[in-house]
Design a protein around this nucleic acid. Structure first.
Lengths: 342, 342
DNA sequence: CGTGAGGGTGTAAGCGCTTCCACTCATCCC
DNA sequence: GGGATGAGTGGAAGCGCTTACACCCTCACG
């Protein structure tokens, strides 16, 4: 009731229960023996004082934060939100709080990450969000680390990624089956694990005697896709013919490209086919519905949380690397296909 | 280099610089006078030891966490992600970390919230995520509190909400202008600030001599909207005629309703008009594009972060309440309207 | 040249908890 | 019956920092 501002401390509980703080601590944490009667008295005092142990005290003494960090390059769009959802859910189940950090637009990223490192028992970092040397520094300091959506391994860190190479090949093969030959790739390859996709697509094209195009960089947003779409679909941007299929690095870019195509009066997939990646909600509802590769975004987050927990609890000390399967989702934006219509 | 596992402490820095820990602290935090030469020596030692002050130590001693909490009912869908984006961005600028908590599917919500309270200097809570008595308990403990998307005020807490009443009236008026008379409302009113919208729409309908329908509850997801849509559009679910317009509590529900309508072979807006709320990305790309009310989701988060900062820093001690304007976005899903086409 | 005002620094007391260690009794067994 | 055992408890030392408070020393000033 009169629990005005500051919360009670363990000393007040101890005094009220007529025991020492050591006993209170033992009674509450279940470490060490406590007589049933004593425990009861302690619990009653806790109840009456509405005592909640100070996290700072606990953490400082025990050396554990019971918190995980997660570093995003950005928080916009459905992809990151879904990963966060899966991550938070599992972390919370495991009794860990989640501290999020988005580096988008922030200047002193290394400092922010270091600060985060001081608040958590382990952290998850997205792809190339943080410079490799900073990641290495963090890892070297003994902080459990899980990298998400990264093609290559990182010393001392787990990696959780979704499958890219095979699914990209499947997508490319499918598109070739439609008869498309003049590919454009929308989205640079410096981000996350996307270069894997381009490489794989390139290989399939080469196998079919097609020279793989260079991916055109753009921001991974609808606006970014729109801008790039306008450019790719303009009649005179390069000597060759207009692409008959634009493979986009993610669904948002694809949606932007579709917008640009519509604006130019081009029909999809009649004049140009478009594909995305991720299978965000809008992909299913878009006009035309977007052919894409479904990525298990929540699962990505959930697995990262579990892997991190293993690392933190020392269940495992050798870094593991897991790849989560993806699924090609064929919809209208890549044209109707004999095989799919069956 | 040999910074093996544990990070250096202030004691090691002090020893290396040949000063006391008090001086190190003063030099680093700029509190109290320190001779230029001494400061330099301290800074060099800090550099050499790669010293980063332990957050726990700092927080315990200073009584501040430099962290904010935010409690979501759920993290799925674009709405919450956007709010988080705005929130994190501002909080980070203000030098505060963000701890997220999603109560979706979690049992002991009050405990989770209390734990969160022990980790932060202030927190933001969404609508009715947490029981009022728990909110009151937190507020009474002196924790700075900002409520988001809540119609009514909460003792001792700021409120940041987006405008509902006027925009709902505008939407209803617009739909009446289309000639629709048989309204259905999709989405219960126990969530967040949505009842404000239903009330406002009901008033407008009543003014036009139409008996306002009872909102049909459903989950605020595409699937929830789909299920409800099937029900509302089934020929025999109630005696009256099929609704000619379904006003949905949010865009996801609306997308689900559209799916259900398509499945029934109904055309939108020809057979039935559909409207959403929020203006998420998919609304713009949906087929037909969704008429909706744009809610400034990022701004909601950003303002909450700023309000919370004011509360924490004691700039303001009287709770404030702000309402952010929204915007009616007319697209194809409610039919073409003479006024809009001009 | 004496004195007071600071600048500059160190000492030590916390902040709220966990946990090692020592200690006290009952209890048990040979 | 005596010592070993172990359950139950308290004392106290940290965990890494901030910050009164006391102290010393150097000047400027009268």
């Amino acid at each position: 009731m009169a629990n005005s501002d500051e919360s009670a401390t363990i000393y007040e509980v101890a005094q009220r229960a007529g025991v020492s703080i050591a006993t209170v601590s033992r009674a509450l944490r279940g470490t060490g023996p406590v007589a049933a009667k004593t425990r009861e008295r302690v619990l009653r005092a806790v109840e009456e004082l509405r005592f909640t142990p100070s996290r700072l005290g606990v953490s400082l003494a025990s050396g554990r934060h019971a918190a995980n960090g997660i570093v995003f390059p950005d928080l916009s769009g459905p992809y990151f939100a879904e990963v966060l959802l899966g991550y938070e859910e599992v972390a919370s189940e495991l009794g860990r709080s989640v501290i999020v950090l988005s580096t988008r637009g922030r200047a002193a990223v290394p400092d922010l990450v270091r600060d985060l490192a001081g608040r958590v028992d382990g952290m998850v970092i997205f792809g190339q969000t943080v410079r490799d040397e900073v990641v290495a520094e963090i890892a070297a300091s003994g902080m459990p680390l899980v990298m998400i959506a990264r093609g290559d391994a990182v010393a001392g860190a787990d990696v959780v990624a979704s499958e890219n190479t095979e699914s990209a090949a499947r997508l490319a093969t499918h598109l070739l089956g439609h008869g498309y030959r003049n590919f454009a790739l929308a989205g640079g390859h410096d981000q996350g694990d996307i270069s894997q996709r381009w490489t794989s697509i390139g290989r399939v094209l080469a196998e079919h005697g097609i020279t793989p195009p260079e991916p055109s960089p753009c921001e991974f947003t609808v606006d970014g896709g729109y801008a790039l779409g306008r450019y790719l679909l303009s009649a005179h941007h390069h000597s060759g013919p207009r692409p008959d299929v634009i493979v986009c690095a993610d669904d948002q870019v694809a949606l932007g490209v579709i917008l640009a195509a519509e604006e130019r009066g081009l029909s999809i997939p009649g004049d140009v086919a478009v594909t995305g990646w991720d299978d965000i909600m809008a992909a299913r509802h878009a006009r035309p519905a977007l052919t894409t590769v479904r990525q298990p975004m929540r699962d990505l987050g959930a697995r990262a949380a579990r892997a991190l927990d293993e690392l933190i609890n020392g269940v495992r000390d050798t870094p593991s690397s897991q790849v989560i399967p993806t699924e090609l989702v064929v919809r209208a934006s890549c044209g109707s296909h004999p095989l799919e219509e069956a």
